[in-house]
Write a protein that binds this DNA or RNA. Structure first.
Length: 817
RNA sequence: GGGCGGGUGGCGGAAUUGGCAGACGCGCUAGAUUUAGGAUCUAGUUCCCGUAAGGGAGUGGGGGUUCAAGUCCCCCCUCGCCCACCA
């Protein structure tokens, strides 16, 4: 048994020993460490850094990191100075929750996890530059996260305000809009409730327009750009003032994208939270209105979001004046109007808005048609929401919608009853978190001086270490509030007693600038090394999950734009090119512990090695779509690798240095071309299949024709995919390491052309035969050759060839009658 | 409800953008090798009829444009993701 195992191993590629050998070599020779101060042709390749959870690296990590390293290595083989850093997004709730459960300090558990993950990350065999590892929970790092907060504060982009915010009762913290999914906490799925709290925000809304505009300048997936555009949600329209009938001095501001429908505004609706509600409600309606407001307040987002929910509302008893028709129109309140969007009040045009139509029907409000396709009346049995021609609209009747929109907005402005206006769906970024494991917000409250920013030279505001987090839960006070040592401080301005802000920052603040830190992760004189940042940034290629489309990827763009406006950066888009890796599923479902369908990479790496594991991930399917994991599929890659292993072993001596066989040359050069194109564009699956075809060709070729050149080309093309394996093969071929000091082969146009081509003959569009012909044959020669084929004769005999289509080098189609 | 993607053999997936559908891999079948198994090599493998030669059908369904459609156009079914009362 043991003996046969040894024999077997002699045939089989010894992955374990080879991978160990080359990882040690790379490390000893400092191989993948670019000169960061004076790079040649630089390439900054970045993957989204990972959260150091207690788990091992999972398939998702591998799928993000392995193929990206392949892409980076491919560019290394083109002579680029590739910078590929790695670090840890180490702050966050899971570490804190784990700490509470197990009584371990989050710092301890996080460091333990980082140590473990770092070891695993080395097994990938990627070109990570560990000199510049980043740990966002290290004061060395987070002092600069706090510094960035201060920059935004001084720019007026960080402010505190009291407003209804999303509160997760289970996590005991507020959440940003982006972190609420279907009314539930993104992390724990607990329904989110509204709380009126004073919180810190970043004024991302001030950058709405720039964030939209910048999308046109970056090479990102269209889908992601569309998501960001939609999230920002720009609407162009007008704000129109509606005077109250009871007191014409007082007005209600309504935003509309359809000022052309103003003559059809037969009632108004305020959001229940609207401050005017209390003022205008008449005595008779007061009880009804109060009940409704109270009920709306209690209604959770989930209920409000419920599908086909009937529209409800109540009449306030008050009336407004439509400034164009001069009619008195009733003012209602209803929760289908959102206080957080636009002005929190709408002019309702039931004839031309589905929601208003539904509401008007329920409450018997009048519906007036003011737009139709042709300007003729078609009645109000249906709601017509398209643009068209105005009717029943006074002097504007007969005008086209687009024209009327402009004119009415202008006229509003002239009459001082409104103006053209743009609204965005985007809300300011709520960055306060009532949790411990994050960067403290560097603010101090002084009775005399008020809100005072911590001076830059007092940073970092360090987290207190001696806090037992278990005693802070459920107290209604954020954890840092339980540390007197932390809270009590002196005012940086007057020196008097003061209290520190006890909230910490959203971890998305940490990750909104880490890629600046990477180029000199231990730089002491500032958040980043300015020379290196201007050399290396922006990131040339960013790779990460699509789930960050409207979170991390939006926040990072905002922070960079703000820092750019402050004159601190000479670029304003952080990621020039972006690719999302797909999701690896198991049995069609997303892998998760709760489903019990996770695949542990470790098991497969032990059996096959990391090269084979990463290659299988790449071979499974298109990188941006992911694929379904199959335990069996990986053996195909294992066989492929061993076929190459035996091939190279059997050619210790070559009869030829360079290839002389025409067919082999042609195949080799077209393989080079296709593999290069596919690897460059993240089509790893087809790149690998091209290499497999090439290997199959070599197996079938006359072995005296196989030259050293053929095998070296194979090994070089494969190198980005299987770095350890190909280093070994390169050495077996008599070269000194490292293969990554080599250049990827170039293809020569002359070998892509062939002297004869295979042509298909179709008769009436159906394939009937094929034949070989000289590549430079004329159409007439091709036609003659095709028609003289015996099989073709049978089809055209006695018939007229009415048309002939020749696609040179591909096919000829004979149309017969 | 809106926006964006998809639907191709037993399976994962390929198809110079309109030009031989099913590359490559898994699985399966047969043969070689082997004491046997495994491994390896060779051949085959969309489906239907046929021993074969050959013929027919075929990319979710239906219609269309074209010499030629997986690819373009129209209608429908279906799955996935994102946003969901955004005025």
């Amino acid at each position: 048994m043991q003996e046969s195992k040894v024999q077997e191993d002699a045939q089989h590629y010894p992955h374990e020993q080879v991978e160990k050998k080359w990882r040690a070599y790379w490390q000893d020779h400092q191989l993948h460490k670019p000169d960061l101060d004076n790079p040649g042709d630089k390439l900054y390749t970045l993957v989204m850094f990972s959260y150091p959870s207690g788990d091992k690296l999972h398939c998702g990590h591998w799928y993000n990191f392995g193929p990206t390293d392949t892409w980076a290595r491919y560019h290394r083989l083109q002579g680029k100075d590739v910078f590929e850093p790695m670090g840890f997004d180490a702050f966050g709730l899971p570490a804190e929750n784990y700490a509470i459960q197990h009584g371990i300090h989050p710092h301890e558990s996080t460091q333990a996890n980082i140590n473990y993950m770092r070891k695993q990350l080395r097994e990938i065999g990627a070109m990570y530059d560990w000199r510049n590892e980043v740990d966002t929970s290290d004061p060395e790092y987070y002092q600069w996260t706090q510094w960035i907060f201060l920059q935004l504060y001084h720019m007026g982009l960080a402010y505190k305000k009291k407003s209804p915010v999303n509160w997760c009762p289970s996590c005991e913290t507020v959440l940003a809009n982006e972190q609420v999914i279907d009314g539930k906490c993104e992390r724990c799925d607990t329904p989110v409730v509204k709380k009126n709290l004073e919180q810190w925000f970043f004024k991302i809304t001030e950058y709405a327009e720039e964030l939209l505009e910048g999308l046109d300048r970056i090479d990102w997936p269209e889908k992601t750009k569309a998501m960001q555009r939609h999230w920002i949600g720009k609407s162009v329209g007008a704000e129109i003032l509606f005077p109250l009938a009871a007191n014409e001095e007082q007005t209600i501001r309504a935003f509309t994208t359809r000022p052309d429908t103003i003559f059809g505004a037969t009632y108004m609706v305020l959001a229940p939270e609207h401050p005017l509600v209390e003022d205008i409600t008449t005595e008779e309606q007061q009880d009804l209105v109060r009940d409704y407001v109270e009920k709306a307040d209690k209604t959770s987002d989930i209920e409000r979001l419920a599908e086909d929910r009937e529209k409800t509302g109540v009449f306030t008893g008050a009336y407004a004046i439509n400034p164009f028709t001069e009619e008195k129109i009733p003012i209602w309140i209803a929760d289908y109007v959102l206080y957080t969007y636009g002005t929190g009040a709408i002019m309702a045009v039931p004839a031309h808005d589905e929601r208003d139509y539904e509401f008007a029907q329920t409450y018997q409000l009048s519906i007036r048609e003011v737009i139709s396709p042709d300007g003729e009346s078609h009645g109000t049995d249906q709601c017509y929401t398209d643009y068209g021609m105005l009717l029943n609209s006074g002097e504007y009747s007969g005008m086209a919608s687009q024209e009327a929109i402009k004119r009415i907005a202008e006229d509003c402005e002239a009459r001082d009853i409104g103006r053209a206006s743009v609204q965005y769906r985007l809300r300011d970024w709520l960055i306060s978190r009532q949790r411990y494991w994050g960067a403290p917000i560097p603010i101090v409250y002084c009775d005399k001086c008020g809100t005072v920013p911590v001076p830059e030279d007092h940073l970092p505001v360090e987290l207190p270490r001696d806090l037992d987090l278990r005693n802070t839960r459920g107290t209604g006070v954020a954890p840092l509030g339980h540390s007197d040592e932390f809270v009590n401080t002196s005012c940086p301005e007057c020196g008097g007693t003061a209290r520190r802000e006890i909230d910490t920052m959203d971890t998305f603040v940490d990750s909104s600038w880490y890629f600046l830190r990477y180029v000199d992760a231990h730089y002491a004189d500032g958040p980043w090394n300015p020379n290196r940042v201007s050399t290396w940034l922006p990131v040339d290629q960013y790779v990460g999950g699509a789930e960050h489309a409207t979170m991390h990827l939006l926040y990072a763009r905002f922070v960079i734009k703000a820092l750019h406006d402050k004159g601190l950066l000479d670029f304003d888009e952080p990621f020039t090119r972006l690719v999302h890796q797909g999701v690896i599923t198991k049995d069609g479902a997303k892998m998760s512990k709760s489903r019990g369908n996770t695949v542990s990479p470790d098991e497969f790496i032990e059996q096959y090695g990391s090269d084979i594991f990463r290659m299988y991930l790449m071979f499974m399917g298109p990188y941006e779509e992911g694929g379904d994991w199959s335990d069996k599929g990986i053996v195909g890659i294992d066989r492929f690798v061993n076929r190459i292993w035996r091939l190279v072993q059997s050619f210790s001596e070559f009869t030829k240095e360079t290839c002389e066989d025409d067919t082999l040359l042609h195949i080799m050069h077209s393989t080079i071309k296709q593999v290069r194109e596919d690897t460059e564009s993240f089509k790893f699956n087809t790149a690998l299949s091209r290499i497999m075809e090439y290997v199959n060709t070599l197996y079938k070729a006359d072995e005296t024709e196989i030259a050293r050149e053929n095998l070296e080309t194979l090994v070089l093309l494969l190198a980005p995919f299987a770095p350890h394996f190909t280093e070994e093969l390169w050495e077996m071929l008599g070269h000194s390491p490292s293969i990554f000091e080599q250049r990827i082969p170039e293809y020569a146009e002359q070998y892509l052309q062939r002297s004869t081509v295979d042509m298909v003959v179709q008769v009436n569009g159906k394939v009937r035969d094929t034949f070989d012909i000289a590549a430079d044959s004329s159409e007439e020669e091709i036609k003659q050759a095709a028609m003289s084929l015996e099989k073709i004769q049978n089809y055209i005999d006695g018939k007229d060839v009415v048309k002939t289509i020749v696609i040179p080098g591909r096919l000829i189609n004979l149309v017969v009658k």
